[in-house]
Design a protein around this nucleic acid. Structure first.
Lengths: 255, 255
DNA sequence: TCTTACTTACGTACATCGTACGTAGTACGC
DNA sequence: GCGTACTACGTACGATGTACGTAAGTAAGA
């Protein structure tokens, strides 16, 4: 599984230029930021991430291109590829930078529910400043330095919980998923514009068709496009989820 | 529902060449599939969606380009734009096609938990056949014909529940979010390849650093990259969420 | 110290993407 | 039949990710 595709690389030819192009790792955290050879790099991962984040904040995620970020750094486009070999990894840098914005307490207070609630409420604040984050956190775990510290803190909050380690990881994933989903919902609700208008008139048409009684009732009993008046919905749901997650394992009520 | 969108078309300007370039709606479901004028369209939304879905299933979402889909239909690239003015709307078609794969029961059995469990387990089956779906369901509600039927059925399952309509919609969103997240996690777990390998060696390095004791313990107490041996995790979590969602509103245990 | 090997920096170039635009042909409403 | 709105599609433009080659700079081994 390790070396099946470079079998016939330099075998027949003894020339000098690099015996094995050593398969750059897919994960950017696996390559050292600095090797100590060659000229001193002009940029750091932090500055690159900051530049990219600034662009995404100001003009949206689609405005983040390699050219654009390189230009923002005052570098040639292709120079950026020395630091970030793939655009996906630029996204990794951006996510880790955002996770790092939360100044974590030194250690949890000990009250699990309160600690978790505070943690995720802060995270929601961060996501509100960086509305592009949810689109990026699909299946890719954010495990850069800041992501690791964040994960470690989350697990420290659950240190006393009577749960297997895997359940704690699942809890993290579940709560983060909810967080991003809620943030993204806020985004679309606040987007306004033509899409919003179209959606409303479409739903009106749907309601008037009379073919969807349950949907109709659900819509009229609670405003649809209406953004949440406060964080009440978030808080309430968050607490429900925390409770669900902390419950060791419900006895299976299978029929 | 029949004629409400052509109100102010020719009112202010009597010139010939289309007085108002009538602002094509952002939502594809808002434009009729067939207007009755001009030549008969050679393709249908269903066939277009099917072609796109086939490509995505076979070669991944990134292989779905307008050119590719048009070619699969035997049409010129730009002809596709008569049916789908924006690529985003092609994605809408694809999602609705996938939602339509589940042959919904005529009406729920009446046992809320069982009905919901069955519904989402089927949905998981669909997502396993179309691994690209979670990436597409970020913030865009899927409200095509099939999406509407699906939503209506979900709400019918909750018809007897003592919840406000908004809470039911939130429940739908929450459960769907979990579903997609779980499916996406399965995808990355099953992806294999170099990324997986890199991730493992990275985590090994992290563990060996000794700086993340809680993370270390969580990792060793439950395999990380290990795909779930069965659907047990999904089922258990799904039930927890269903219970949480059906609970009218926990009394606020605010300190 | 010199050499060598590897780094950084960046310009050029290519394939591919979404899609704006224009033109030609077709079929329904008047 | 006439006009208008539709379908069909070729061409073309700007932008993207990034492979590749070259020049220059610096640390490690002789």
């Amino acid at each position: 599984m390790t070396d099946d595709q470079v079998a016939d690389d330099q075998v027949t030819d003894g020339s000098a230029t690099g015996a094995t192009p050593p398969e750059a790792p897919e994960l950017i955290w696996l390559r050292p930021e600095r090797t100590g050879r060659g000229p001193r790099p002009a940029h750091s991962r932090d500055s690159i991430a900051a530049a990219a984040v600034a662009i995404a904040d100001a003009e949206g995620l689609d405005a983040v291109s390699m050219r654009r970020v390189a230009a923002a750094l005052g570098a040639g486009t292709m120079s950026l590829y020395n630091y970030v070999p793939k655009k996906e990894q630029l996204f990794d840098l951006m996510l880790d930078a955002v996770v790092g914005e939360y100044e974590l307490p030194a250690s949890p207070s000990g009250d699990q529910r309160t600690d978790l609630r505070l943690l995720f409420r802060r995270q929601l604040g961060i996501l509100r400043r960086h509305t592009w984050v949810p689109r990026l956190v699909v299946g890719r775990p954010s495990l850069g330095p800041n992501g690791l510290r964040y994960t470690e803190y989350f697990l420290a909050c659950l240190a006393d919980a009577d749960l297997p380690g895997s359940a704690k990881m699942e809890a993290l994933s579940l709560l983060n998923g909810f967080l991003c989903q809620y943030a993204e919902w806020e985004n679309t609700a606040a987007a306004g514009g033509k899409w919003q208008t179209d959606l409303v008139s479409y739903l009106q048409r749907v309601v008037l068709s009379g073919d969807y009684p349950h949907l109709t009732q659900a819509l009229i009993s609670g405003g649809t496009g209406t953004p949440p008046d406060s964080d009440a919905i978030f808080d309430r749901t968050l607490q429900q989820l925390i409770s669900a997650v902390l419950t060791p394992t419900a006895p299976d009520p299978r029929g």
